[in-house]
């Protein structure tokens, strides 16, 4: 079986079969990551497509010294962050206009009934994405640092920060 990096080199030369293999290999994992980070399956569907379009557009400029997996997760995480920012702007605008709307896509129940999915959804995005990448996707610290473009020390502190916050929320309920 060809490695991710070999497939990516082929994609850079316009090989559609290699692109199809990469999509097949990673679509489910990237979609699961996006669902967990955005909290919404439909958003994850859209972002999954955008991720692969970006991969195809960026294939020629892909640095052969890099690993493919963190690069893919990095693209997906960037798209999720962009979506989060756009949502935040819309939500702020709605609040300023006194429109009672929850556009975040996440509806929270009362504190005593919240479960772990909601606790996860309530984590700040920067903490949630590292936790999801580590716990569910199994990326190591170096891969996460590469994917998110942050130092390894920051990855470590965010991971512990995420667990600390979850523990506080867990103890509070």
């Amino acid at each position: 079986m060809e490695s991710d990096e070999e497939l990516m080199r082929a994609v850079a030369h316009g090989d559609e079969r290699a692109l199809a293999s990469l999509v097949e290999r990673y679509a489910a994992r990237i979609h699961a990551f996006l669902t967990r980070v955005t909290g919404d399956r439909d958003d994850a569907d859209d972002l999954l497509q955008d991720t692969w379009v970006r991969v195809a557009r960026g294939a020629r400029g892909f640095d052969a010294a890099r690993r493919v997996r963190p690069w893919l997760y990095g693209i997906a995480a960037n798209l999720a962050r962009d979506l989060h920012r756009r949502r935040a702007v819309r939500l702020r605008a709605a609040r300023e206009g006194n429109v009672a709307a929850n556009e975040s896509g996440v509806t929270f129940r009362s504190a005593e009934r919240i479960d772990m999915r909601e606790r996860l959804a309530r984590l700040p995005e920067r903490l949630r994405e590292v936790l999801v990448l580590r716990y569910f996707d199994g990326l190591d610290e170096a891969e996460m640092a590469e994917a998110l473009g942050i130092p390894r020390g920051t990855v470590k502190s965010r991971l512990h920060g995420a667990l600390r916050e979850l523990r506080q929320k867990w103890e509070a309920t």
């Binding site: 559609e16 199809a20 195809a56």
Partner: peptide, 17 residues
């Protein structure tokens, strides 16, 4: 969803030429 993602990516790959 995967099929659409693949189609869009393939079109983007061709368009890049």
């Amino acid at each position: 969803v995967v099929a659409t993602a693949q189609q869009r990516a393939t079109r983007a790959l061709r368009a890049r030429e």
